[in-house]
């Protein structure tokens, strides 16, 4: 796993144009540096011929233009934050901590997370909103899907709440590996992990509970899949969007006959509990 870095030195007035053209040629994100910028592409997923064409066209405008390429190996860039993060307590009921924390007292639920650059440590409001929603849903003996699992924190919570089997899916290979590590760290032997999109998975049986803390666009796109893979009476728990996005989410869920049960809010983020 690596990224291709292009380092561009150019006159300031050409910077935005080159960013626009290189973004079109497959570079995903850019950062300003003195006398130019750097752009990054996943692996070698950029159009080398298009980049060469851009170099040609802009070198006719200025002599002060250079492109340099190198590779950056993927590593845990979040390590500094992860080495010193504070534990999180949700509603005096659930403690989320790192392996290096010594818990001061017992809580009904305790989750240990070593995130390694995956999402889901309880520091973001949406994770807390999902766990709050989970606390109100009976998980005993239930079959659960965790769509876009990240650290698999919600899967671990489902396991601790008594779920019988949990299937966790994430398109990011790092999260799949990390989710497995966190499942072991919490002695949850009933969590299975899959790499890919939720829609790309084949599950023989429907689920009693589907958990999805992703984002508005993905939730809207996948609502039909969630509805189609829930048992009648099953629960769909959603987050990853703002309060202001709730009407759009509810309009879409109503199209698939999902009934609104609860809404939680924190710091302008929201989570929803729906029932089929």
């Amino acid at each position: 796993m690596f990224h291709t870095r292009i380092t561009v030195k150019c006159p300031a007035e050409l910077s935005d144009m080159l960013v626009a053209e290189l973004a079109d040629a497959g570079f995903d994100a850019f950062i300003e540096i003195p006398d130019g910028f750097e752009g990054y592409a996943d692996g070698e997923q950029y159009d080398a011929k298009a980049v060469e064409d851009i170099r040609h066209r802009y070198q006719s405008l200025t002599q002060d233009l250079t492109f340099n390429f190198d590779k950056v190996e993927k590593t845990n860039w979040n390590a500094v934050w992860e080495s010193s993060y504070e534990p999180v307590v949700i509603d005096d009921t659930c403690l989320i901590r790192a392996a290096f924390h010594k818990p001061e007292r017992n809580f009904p639920y305790e989750i240990i997370i070593t995130p390694k650059m995956s999402f889901g440590t309880g520091h973001h409001p949406t994770t807390r909103l999902m766990i709050r929603a989970q606390l109100g849903v009976d998980h005993h003996g239930k079959r659960v899907l965790d769509a876009g699992c990240g650290t698999a924190i919600l899967s671990v919570m489902a396991s601790k709440l008594g779920a019988s089997e949990i299937h966790a899916v994430d398109p990011d290979e790092w999260s799949v590996i990390n989710g497995g590590e966190n499942a072991r760290l919490n002695d949850c032997g009933n969590i299975s992990l899959y790499k890919g999109t939720t829609r790309g998975q084949q599950f023989a049986e429907p689920f009693d509970i589907i958990l999805a803390n992703i984002n508005k666009n993905v939730l809207l796109d996948d609502m039909d899949w969630y509805a189609g893979h829930l048992r009648t009476g099953g629960s769909l728990l959603l987050s990853g969007f703002y309060d202001s996005d709730v009407p759009d989410i509810l309009a879409q869920s109503a199209r698939y006959n999902l009934v609104f049960l609860h809404r939680f809010e924190e710091d302008s983020w929201a989570s929803l509990v729906l029932q089929k």
Binding site: A29, K74, N78, W81, H124, G150
Partner: peptide, 21 residues
């Protein structure tokens, strides 16, 4: 969390995942 976001924020001890979300 890939570069440039990961290294730029991570090296300063910021929570990268929080920014991305």
């Amino acid at each position: 969390p890939s570069p440039p976001i990961g290294p730029a924020l991570g090296s300063k001890g910021l929570n990268i995942m929080d920014f991305c979300k």
